[in-house]
Amino acid sequence: MLIQILVTIGIVILVLPSIYSSYKRKTITPFAFFIWILFWIIGLVLIWDPSLIDFIGKALGVGRSIDALVYIAIVFLLYSTLSQRIRINELSKEITLLNRKLALEDVKQEKK
Protein backbone atom coordinates (compact mmCIF):
# COMPACT_ATOMS: atom_id res chain seq x y z
CA MET A 1 0.00 0.00 0.00
CA LEU A 2 1.10 3.57 -0.68
CA ILE A 3 0.75 4.63 2.98
CA GLN A 4 3.14 1.87 4.07
CA ILE A 5 5.70 3.02 1.52
CA LEU A 6 5.36 6.70 2.50
CA VAL A 7 5.69 6.01 6.24
CA THR A 8 8.68 3.74 5.62
CA ILE A 9 10.39 6.41 3.51
CA GLY A 10 9.64 8.99 6.24
CA ILE A 11 11.19 6.83 8.94
CA VAL A 12 14.23 5.88 6.88
CA ILE A 13 14.94 9.34 5.48
CA LEU A 14 13.93 11.58 8.40
CA VAL A 15 13.64 9.72 11.69
CA LEU A 16 16.58 7.31 11.66
CA PRO A 17 19.16 9.88 10.45
CA SER A 18 17.87 12.34 13.06
CA ILE A 19 18.44 9.76 15.82
CA TYR A 20 21.89 8.98 14.45
CA SER A 21 22.74 12.68 14.28
CA SER A 22 21.64 13.15 17.92
CA TYR A 23 23.87 10.24 18.88
CA LYS A 24 26.84 11.70 16.97
CA ARG A 25 26.33 15.10 18.64
CA LYS A 26 26.21 13.22 21.97
CA THR A 27 22.82 14.70 22.86
CA ILE A 28 21.55 11.17 23.53
CA THR A 29 23.33 8.32 25.30
CA PRO A 30 24.33 5.11 23.42
CA PHE A 31 21.58 3.32 25.38
CA ALA A 32 18.92 5.84 24.26
CA PHE A 33 20.24 5.53 20.69
CA PHE A 34 19.84 1.75 20.83
CA ILE A 35 16.30 1.97 22.32
CA TRP A 36 15.13 4.51 19.70
CA ILE A 37 16.58 2.55 16.80
CA LEU A 38 14.98 -0.65 18.13
CA PHE A 39 11.66 1.17 18.63
CA TRP A 40 11.54 2.44 15.05
CA ILE A 41 12.72 -0.85 13.52
CA ILE A 42 9.92 -2.65 15.38
CA GLY A 43 7.60 0.08 14.10
CA LEU A 44 8.79 -0.52 10.52
CA VAL A 45 8.23 -4.27 10.81
CA LEU A 46 4.73 -3.76 12.21
CA ILE A 47 3.84 -1.32 9.46
CA TRP A 48 4.48 -4.09 6.93
CA ASP A 49 3.01 -6.93 8.99
CA PRO A 50 0.57 -5.79 11.70
CA SER A 51 -0.65 -9.38 12.17
CA LEU A 52 2.57 -10.08 14.12
CA ILE A 53 0.99 -8.48 17.21
CA ASP A 54 -2.52 -9.88 16.84
CA PHE A 55 -2.14 -11.59 20.20
CA ILE A 56 -2.14 -8.14 21.93
CA GLY A 57 -5.51 -7.22 20.44
CA LYS A 58 -6.98 -10.57 21.40
CA ALA A 59 -5.64 -10.28 24.95
CA LEU A 60 -7.01 -6.74 25.39
CA GLY A 61 -10.35 -7.47 23.76
CA VAL A 62 -9.81 -4.91 20.98
CA GLY A 63 -10.64 -6.20 17.51
CA ARG A 64 -7.37 -5.26 15.82
CA SER A 65 -4.01 -4.98 17.56
CA ILE A 66 -3.19 -1.85 15.63
CA ASP A 67 -6.18 -0.15 17.32
CA ALA A 68 -4.81 -1.12 20.72
CA LEU A 69 -1.46 0.41 19.74
CA VAL A 70 -3.16 3.63 18.63
CA TYR A 71 -5.03 3.90 21.97
CA ILE A 72 -1.84 3.30 23.93
CA ALA A 73 0.03 5.82 21.76
CA ILE A 74 -2.65 8.49 22.34
CA VAL A 75 -2.48 8.01 26.12
CA PHE A 76 1.31 8.10 26.02
CA LEU A 77 1.36 11.27 23.88
CA LEU A 78 -1.16 13.04 26.13
CA TYR A 79 0.86 12.14 29.21
CA SER A 80 4.08 13.21 27.54
CA THR A 81 2.59 16.56 26.44
CA LEU A 82 1.23 17.23 29.90
CA SER A 83 4.50 16.48 31.67
CA GLN A 84 6.42 18.61 29.18
CA ARG A 85 3.97 21.48 29.69
CA ILE A 86 4.42 21.23 33.46
CA ARG A 87 8.20 21.26 33.06
CA ILE A 88 8.09 24.26 30.69
CA ASN A 89 5.91 26.11 33.17
CA GLU A 90 8.33 25.34 35.99
CA LEU A 91 11.28 26.47 33.87
CA SER A 92 9.47 29.67 32.92
CA LYS A 93 8.90 30.48 36.59
CA GLU A 94 12.51 29.69 37.42
CA ILE A 95 13.72 32.00 34.63
CA THR A 96 11.55 34.81 35.99
CA LEU A 97 12.84 34.27 39.54
CA LEU A 98 16.44 34.21 38.31
CA ASN A 99 15.84 37.42 36.33
CA ARG A 100 14.37 39.01 39.43
CA LYS A 101 17.26 37.91 41.61
CA LEU A 102 19.77 39.41 39.17
CA ALA A 103 17.79 42.65 38.89
CA LEU A 104 17.49 43.05 42.66
CA GLU A 105 21.23 42.63 43.18
CA ASP A 106 21.68 46.28 42.11
CA VAL A 107 19.17 47.44 44.72
CA LYS A 108 20.93 45.41 47.41
CA GLN A 109 24.27 46.95 46.39
CA GLU A 110 22.82 50.47 46.51
CA LYS A 111 21.33 49.77 49.92
CA LYS A 112 24.77 48.82 51.27
Binding site: I95, N99, R100, L102, A103, L104
Partner: peptide
Protein backbone atom coordinates in the same frame (compact mmCIF):
# COMPACT_ATOMS: atom_id res chain seq x y z
CA UNK B 1 17.21 47.83 37.51
CA UNK B 2 16.84 45.42 34.65
CA UNK B 3 15.70 41.96 33.74
CA UNK B 4 18.36 40.38 31.52
CA UNK B 5 15.55 38.68 29.56
CA UNK B 6 12.09 40.04 28.79
CA UNK B 7 9.55 38.37 31.08
CA UNK B 8 6.42 40.49 30.76
CA UNK B 9 4.73 43.33 32.59
CA UNK B 10 3.59 41.17 35.49
CA UNK B 11 7.09 39.89 36.21
CA UNK B 12 8.59 43.38 35.94
CA UNK B 13 5.98 44.88 38.26
CA UNK B 14 6.57 42.20 40.90
CA UNK B 15 10.34 42.84 40.64
Amino acid sequence: ISHPINRGKGAATQT
